[in-house]
Amino acid sequence: MEIQTSEINTVLEIQDLVVNYETDDGIVHAVNGVNLKLERGRTLALVGETGAGKTTIALSILRLIQDPPGKIRGGSIRLEGEDLLTYTERQMEAIRGDKVSMIFQDPMTSLNPVLTVGDQIAEVIQIHQKVSKAEAEKKAREMLELVGIDGDRAKEYPHQFSGGMKQRVVIAIALSCNPTLLIADEPTTALDVTIQAQVLELMKELREKYQTSMIMITHDLGIVAETCDEVSIVYAGRIVEHGTLRDIFKNTKHPYTVGLFNSLPNIKRRKDMLKPIKGLMPDPTNLPSGCPFHPRCDHAQEICSKRKPLTTYLSDTHFVECLAYENGTGVTIAEREG
């Protein structure tokens, strides 16, 4: 009985997901065994640098990775207990936009320039709900008003909207069928700061209204602190640290996570130089041996380049993949400053 309730409460469970981009020039190991779990009504942040594999994880959930060259090579993605990787294309089409929907990064390019915004919202409603065209159009107007745009503007085209307004339209499309899971892929990156705050506020409001679970992909730790319950830090296609917002912000463990925090400007110590993480993301066609972060890690020992770190649970909610937290490896880390 207890197992059943926990299953119902788990909206999404990804296990050992492996995604490669297989090109003539080599295999890009974009996602290398990712595990994550999301409960109903919770928001999970996927944080990491550009190229860490965040978007690939998100697109795998919708099975929308460009194939070729992208291939899901292993693992399972369970949505309310059903493995999406076993679904046919037809079954996936029924899921997309209905149970799982996605907000894309760049609102400037994610709307079709030759269709009215009303049509673009009504389309998703008509696909998934048994309504007439007129009803779908009426619902589309309501959705526009919900995201704070005058319903009469439904007959206008995307080029007549500003960037922030376009992102609101994209949000309206994503929420029109009241999804169980909403994936937001850097929804505010392309917007300026004042509009960012508005869009985030809107998303938070709507999420609470509809009890939607959400995955928020971002590299902005400020957004994470504002909107998320749990945080997964993604590095080279793996989750290197995961915990509640408090675990990650107050009890930071992984040297990479520490590096991310240190790269933020500190308003209290304005004269300090920023401390960026040295080096670049490793080439995903040729990942370093052992811990993928070791070439950039200040605390790296010889063993770090030889053995892959295991998942170490620090508490029920907090885990980290770093040899420093495994017993008997001899790697030690000083506590984070500040």
Binding site: G97, E123, I173
Partner: peptide, 10 residues
Amino acid sequence: YIRTARAKGV
């Protein structure tokens, strides 16, 4: 926007 359309289930 083609990806958006696919993500809508078209």
